[in-house]
Nucleic acid binder design. Structure first.
Lengths: 169, 169
DNA sequence: AAATAATCGTTCGGGTACGAATTGTTTCAC
DNA sequence: GTGAAACAATTCGTACCCGAACGATTATTT
């Protein structure tokens, strides 16, 4: 993470490549840093909190969402966690094999599948989440306290801007 | 993306799960929104700009870094793009098979591999990047202009906070 | 009631993603 | 100068990750 080239160096290099074209370097910097940050945080979490319990970031997110809202439909987990149903299917199989979650057909609608945590999964989350939140505190530690609400808002604005539906307002 | 539960609902649900424990909900919101945003942006870019050219997000990032700095060492690409050398190896093989990049051993150090764009790759980037930047403009469109520099800084602060070395200052 | 459409979770194929082990190269100690 | 240590990229094994296609179930039409 954190490439060795500075922003200005990159800008002038790009400017040379596309002589005369109008580029929004500020937008470029935000998009680029958004990914550096997300990657850095995920790697940090996996190394410090998740790896000792043999959990990937994605697996943890699925456990977390299920823990909060169980019983929960798979489509809701996917929407809440932010990845596709196809991805979720595989992750659930992994977690099921490790006896952390259970799948069962909905009794009211045969198409739906309800997901729950096993007692083992519930115990794991109760132990893990405080540690996780502790590291989340590290993540934001260099953002001024009075700027943090602002930071969350900005990230929400970015989500809104690229969400397909409801682009108005 | 954009789960159906509001932040406050989530907070009270979590609070119930961990009765009495002190949690930093602001940190939680920032970390969570960071990933929603990063995912949303990547998916948006893949659907609007990249899919027509059969490129994944990662493949595009590799092409971009190479385009700006070629000839470039593989380890530098990985550092600049923010993922592991193991990942890069696979992506380079894919891009090489599509005749978009070339690999060649460094003449001065036999351990290093230098990567370049092929003419085809260079032509692709010259056409693609302006469209990409156009969409980056969409990404930041809902952040107030006078807040954008701030946004980039916050994301950099997050990177710094979780970067293993040089935690001081 | 029987086609038709919509919706759900899964599967499939191709492409990332990582840490650990591996292979090849250079450098360092002596 | 030769063995050891350091370093670079790749390979390996496992686990995501997505869109598209699929089969099963429910809803809608007529």
């Amino acid at each position: 993470m954190a490439g060795e080239h500075t922003l200005t160096e990159t800008e002038s290099a790009v400017a040379q490549k596309l002589n005369g074209l109008v580029l929004d370097f500020e937008a470029m910097a935000i998009a680029s840093n958004l990914f550096r940050a997300a990657n850095a945080v995920r790697n940090h979490m996996e190394r410090t909190v998740l790896a000792p319990h043999d959990l990937t970031w994605t697996a943890f997110v699925v456990l977390w969402v299920t823990w909060i809202w169980e019983p929960i439909e798979t489509r809701t987990i996917a929407a809440e966690a932010g990845f596709s149903k196809a991805t979720l299917s595989g992750v659930l199989t992994t977690l099921e094999g490790r006896n952390l979650v259970t799948r069962e057909k909905s009794t009211t609608d045969g198409r739906l599948v309800m997901v729950r945590l096993t007692p083992v999964g519930r115990r794991l989350m109760k132990k893990l989440f405080p540690k996780f939140n502790e590291e989340e505190r590290t993540v934001v530690s260099r953002i001024h306290k009075n700027q943090r609400a602002n930071a969350a808002d900005m990230l929400r604005s970015i989500c809104l801007a690229v969400t397909p539906f409801d682009k108005s307002k």
